[in-house]
C-alpha cells in the first residue's frame, strides 16, 4: 500500500468555485488570475516564473480554501509558488531590507512576562493611541517581538531562519495569544497547535463592551485572512454576532469574507492607490450602512478612501 498523496494542484477538477470568491479574479476576470488557473497551469507544467503576474496579484486572503470541494490546500499551493518565485522578484532587496529592520527590532526585544500576549503587528504599532486602547480592552501584555519579520517573510515568500523561528515560538508557547496579522495567525495555528489563538477581531468582538455597541446599521468588515484560516469555527462565531447585533457583514452568499483590499505584492509597502480601493467600493454597492466597523487598519484606510460615513476600528467602538 502507498501512503495517500496530499491534495495538491494535481487534484483540481476545475469546478471554478474558487473563482467566485477570489478578489484577483474579480479584478482581472481572467482564469489565470485564480487558484483554479494556477492549479490548471501547474497541471500543464507551468513554472512559478510563468505565473508571476497572478502570484504577485494574490492577496493571500485564503477565501479559496474553504470553498474547494476537493479540499485542496490552495493557500499552500500559492505560498509554495511564491517561495519559488521570491528570489527572482525585482523588488526582493527592498523586501529583505524591511524584513531585516523588523528582525532587528525583534532581536532587541526583552523576554515577555508570563500570561496572555497580544501580537499587534506593524500597522497597529504605527497608531500608539489605538494600540494602547486595544491593550487596555484586552488586558493582554503587548509582545515586544510580534513576529513582524516572520509575517513579512510569509507574505513575500522570503526565508525564515530556523533559529529565528525557534526563538519567536519559544516565547509564545503555551500562552493565550491574540494576533493582529491574519497570515501570521494562520501559520501559528500550525506551529503552535496547542496554543489558544484568536485573531484581534475575534478577541475584541467577543468583549461585551464592544459587542453591545454594534448596531444593525453597521457594516462590519471581518479581516479575511484570519477568518478563512479557521473558517468552520468562525462561520458559526460571526453568524451569532450577526444574529445578536443585526449588523451586516462582509460575507458573501457562501459566507466567505470579501476582502476590502486587493493590494498586489509589488505594492505591499506603498500607499493605498485608487485602484486598490475598487474592491471596497464594490463591497458598498447596494448597501446603505450608517457606519463601517473594521477589524483591520488596512481596511479602514480602504473604506475611508471610498466613502464619507464614519469608519471605525473595532477598538474605537469602546471609546466613549
Amino acid at each position: 500500500m502507498f501512503a495517500a498523496a496530499p491534495l495538491d494542484h494535481a487534484c483540481c477538477s476545475g469546478c471554478s468555485l474558487c473563482r467566485l470568491v477570489c478578489p484577483m479574479w474579480r479584478q482581472h476576470r481572467d482564469p489565470r488570475f485564480s487558484p483554479e488557473g494556477l492549479a490548471k497551469a501547474r497541471q500543464c507544467g507551468a513554472t512559478a516564473a510563468e505565473l508571476t503576474a497572478p502570484l504577485e496579484a494574490c492577496s493571500l486572503c485564503g477565501a479559496c480554501d474553504p470553498v474547494c470541494p476537493e479540499g485542496i490546500d490552495l493557500y499552500a499551493m500559492v505560498m509554495e509558488l511564491r517561495r519559488d518565485l521570491s528570489p527572482a522578484l525585482p523588488y526582493r532587496q527592498a523586501l529583505d531590507a524591511l524584513q531585516a529592520k523588523f528582525a532587528l527590532a525583534a532581536a532587541a526585544a526583552e523576554a515577555p512576562a508570563a500570561g496572555a500576549q497580544f501580537l499587534p503587528g506593524p500597522a497597529l504599532r504605527a497608531h500608539p493611541v489605538l494600540l494602547a486602547r486595544v491593550k487596555a480592552l484586552l488586558g493582554y501584555a503587548c509582545a515586544a517581538d510580534d513576529g513582524a519579520d516572520i509575517a513579512l517573510a510569509l507574505e513575500t515568500g522570503g526565508e525564515i531562519s530556523p533559529a529565528r523561528r525557534r526563538r519567536f515560538l519559544d516565547r509564545l508557547s503555551g500562552r493565550t495569544l491574540a494576533v493582529g496579522d491574519g497570515l501570521l495567525l494562520r501559520q501559528l495555528r500550525q506551529w503552535l497547535p496547542g496554543a489558544r489563538l484568536q485573531s484581534l477581531g475575534e478577541a475584541l468582538a467577543s468583549l461585551t463592551t464592544i459587542r453591545r455597541r454594534l448596531a444593525s446599521t453597521d457594516f462590519y468588515v471581518i479581516e479575511p485572512r484570519a477568518y478563512h484560516a479557521d473558517y468552520e469555527r468562525l462561520v458559526a462565531y460571526y453568524d451569532r454576532l450577526q444574529v445578536e447585533t443585526g449588523c451586516a457583514l462582509n460575507l458573501d452568499l457562501q459566507r466567505i469574507a470579501i476582502p476590502a483590499l486587493r493590494q498586489a505584492l509589488p505594492r505591499l509597502a506603498a500607499p493605498l492607490a485608487d485602484a486598490d480601493a475598487t474592491q471596497a467600493r464594490w463591497m458598498l454597492q447596494g448597501r446603505r450602512p450608517q457606519r463601517i466597523v473594521v477589524e483591520s487598519l488596512a481596511d479602514r484606510a480602504a473604506f475611508e478612501r471610498v466613502c464619507d460615513i464614519p469608519v471605525l476600528h473595532l477598538a474605537e467602538l469602546a471609546q466613549d
Partner: peptide, 26 residues
C-alpha cells in the same frame, strides 16, 4: 497562447474529454 493560458481549459466538468486550444480570447 502557451500552457499558462490554455491549461485552464484542458477539459470540462465531465473530465473525460481532453483538448487544448491554440489560443485563448477572453
Amino acid at each position: 497562447e502557451g500552457r499558462a493560458a490554455c491549461g485552464a481549459y484542458v477539459t470540462d466538468a465531465g473530465g473525460t474529454a481532453y483538448g487544448q486550444p491554440h489560443g485563448v480570447v477572453i
